[in-house]
């Protein structure tokens, strides 16, 4: 039996816009992945603990409120603390171009803005999941 890619799709903070997260969940499922969806209003600690228990290969963070710097930084710190170096982190939402290099520096592997075809996200995950 082949190994299944497991993805945690998480909504950090108070942002309630979940259209994108849910569309991505379904697309990843249809691409044969196992998708764990956290639901809304997650703290950084909840997301990292969930990722750890679920042994996911990928964490996908969706945020449209503009609070991405704070949350992605917190999550990335916690992941380092728990030595989760083999987990791919991707982000999506309303994220200005100029924040992307800063996000990459703190360990976010890729950022997908509005208008990204979901197939691009599927392809990126398949090609970049860490062994």
């Amino acid at each position: 039996m082949e190994k299944k890619i497991r993805v945690l799709v998480a909504k950090p903070g108070l942002d309630g816009h979940d259209r994108g997260a849910k569309v991505v969940c379904r697309a990843l499922r249809d691409a044969g992945m196992e998708v764990i969806y956290t639901g809304l209003h997650q703290t950084a600690e909840q997301i990292v603990n969930t990722a750890l228990q679920e042994d996911v290969d990928v964490i996908g963070l969706s945020l449209l409120s503009g609070a991405h710097m704070t949350f992605f930084t917190d999550i990335s710190h916690l992941m380092k603390k728990k030595k989760m170096t083999d987990v791919l982190v991707v982000g999506g939402g309303i994220i200005p171009e100029e924040d992307v290099p800063r996000l990459k520096k703190i360990g976010v592997n890729a950022v997908f803005g509005p208008g990204t075809p979901v197939n691009d996200i599927v392809r990126y995950i398949r090609e970049n999941v860490k062994e």
Partner: peptide, 28 residues
């Protein structure tokens, strides 16, 4: 999914604050 083999695992939504409870381990 019988078609793709993928799955949507959403049961944790109902239990979110348990993920930081040290005595609880949840697996989907």
């Amino acid at each position: 999914s019988p078609f793709s083999g993928g799955a949507l695992l959403g049961d944790r939504i109902r239990m979110t604050d348990l993920s930081t409870n040290k005595g609880v381990f949840i697996r989907s």
